[in-house]
Design a protein around this nucleic acid. Sequence first.
DNA 1: CGTTGACCTGGAGTGCGCTCCAGGTGCGAG
DNA 2: CTCGCACCTGGAGCGCACTCCAGGTCAACG
Lengths: 119, 119
Amino acid sequence: MSVYTPSEVVEETGFSLDTLRYYEKIGLLERVHRNAAGQRRFTSEDVSWLGMIRCLRDTGMPIAEMLRFAELVREGDHTIADRVKLLEEHDRRVEDQIATLRERQRYLHRKISYYRSVL
Amino acid sequence: MSVYTPSEVVEETGFSLDTLRYYEKIGLLERVHRNAAGQRRFTSEDVSWLGMIRCLRDTGMPIAEMLRFAELVREGDHTIADRVKLLEEHDRRVEDQIATLRERQRYLHRKISYYRSVL
DNA sequence: CGTTGACCTGGAGTGCGCTCCAGGTGCGAG
DNA sequence: CTCGCACCTGGAGCGCACTCCAGGTCAACG
């Protein structure tokens, strides 16, 4: 288990340092370890958890729901069924997002064709 | 050319009345006609323009860019090439959004499978 | 004639998700 | 020894896109 400095985590995850601190403050990221000088030292678990957060955030999950998920994870293995339920519901929303995007894109394409036809 | 009351437009477009007023205020919607009592009466052009707005908004275009597009439309036919350019750039971003969503969804699916495997 | 309901205005307030800031610590390089 | 730099904290501020509110008008219905 290697250890990551804040700037390494910024590099790896694409989250800003302020965002990492914010996520820790609101409890989306469990209290991060500190070195003797009080500076954060992230574990690889922290980094992979942030990978999950990145996925959920990029797919539009609100922070409040990510917090619910984080809580389930903290509660231990007996919540795995609940996590599956939560992620599957989210997956359905992602599917809907893609479908809507595709539909709107068709509209966009029709509009572009129309404009091209009158050029 | 039929005429629509505010509540009809709300119904047709899915935008709230406040949002319609807001769009008019910021110039995304051209000054809407009024009846003798000062109440808004929308034309079918207004409604179809709102359809375009709906499409752009649902695909994540920021209001500032919709305003640029609205301005091009107001300037007349000689801006059609520019409009095509703007819409095509947007279309590329929509494509990227879909691609990102699909990739994140794969992550989600792997996670769900993993959870299912340990249930 | 009174009430209801759809609508009006200008402006303040909201929720989300960060982002920035001031002032401070500790460490390694020159 | 001094400098620069990465980092720390608590808290304020921001940008976006609405959303809500108070107080008012007008027309139609019973």
